[in-house]
Design a protein around this nucleic acid. Structure first.
Lengths: 163, 163
DNA sequence: GCAAATTAATGATTTATTCAAG
DNA sequence: CTTGAATAAATCATTAATTTGC
């Protein structure tokens, strides 16, 4: 194990970033969260995780989102192939998945989600996270349709919109 | 109908609606677009459509996004169930679906998409759409990303928040 | 030893299915 | 029953491992 190879490649004065290539630390943290039972992180959790992992290297929210989707699906697929390999001790911290939350109360979704994060206590919210949260609530209640932004991010964000 | 139905609930000075209920005009326009062959609108198209339809009532990008997903899928399903009900005259302007475009050339995807929009000519692009396009091209061709970009996640998350 | 060719992992999209509001 | 919304499954595409011939 000599030095870690840089994932980013210089290309005519730019950095070629085809797709996200997670570092070992990032994978470890994600794995820990997954083993802790996190399966479908909420928006706030994704935010928090992304912020945390960004200190280890380049990463975006969508990467975290996709990672959990893929990992969840592929663990299932592996379990089907190797029967009884894993003991049935799935912790299942049971993130309410936002649909269940809707079943309980439709209006207070955001506040409930926030509480859940505090309960998780894996990545305590940071100051700027709270800042973002505030702005979010405000914008959702005041502005109907305020955004016109760069297209690449937006396309992906649209896909993430159901988070 | 004594109103105990919470179709819209006041919450911290805002109105929370259950789900999007499209107006007749909105549906008509979406139908027209669909019949014109639009199946998987790009981000810019979704933006443009949303902006137009918002003059008929409250609407968000994700509504447009979901509408096309569902309509496309359900037309298929109906065709399978009711054989020959719909004549096979699907115009299918064949939006390159971005994956096919990728097969041809990865770099010029956005420009191709734009051309398609102009071809459609149902919702001519507006000034801010062009602005967006310019920024997009610039960012993708000149500086994809420095090695570490901290503020990017935050902006992305911000946009994610109210989509 | 080293690149080109091939395979294995896995990040990213799209499609199908399901849930629930109206 | 219709249909908006959300999730899961299937698929595609790119990157890293690895094999192979020189």
């Amino acid at each position: 194990m000599d030095g870690e190879v840089e994932a980013a490649v210089m290309v005519s004065g730019g950095v070629k970033c085809g797709r996200w290539n997670p570092t070992a630390e990032q994978v470890k943290v994600l794995m820990d969260l997954f083993k802790a039972g996190l399966r479908t992180p909420s928006t706030e959790e994704i935010q928090s995780i992304t912020t945390h992992l960004s200190s280890y290297g380049k990463i975006e929210s969508k990467n975290v989102f996709y990672w959990f989707q893929n990992h969840k699906a592929r663990e299932r697929h592996h379990k089907k192939r190797r029967r009884g390999a894993t003991p049935a001790t799935s912790p299942v911290l049971t993130a309410p998945t936002k649909r269940e939350a809707k079943n309980h109360e439709q209006v207070m979704v955001w506040e409930q989600q926030e509480r859940k994060i505090e309960t998780l206590e894996l990545f305590p919210l940071k100051s700027y996270d709270l800042e973002v949260e505030k702005m979010k609530v405000k914008s959702s209640s005041v502005v109907p349709l305020p955004f016109f932004d760069a297209g690449r991010d937006l396309l992906l964000d649209l896909r993430l919109s159901f988070l």
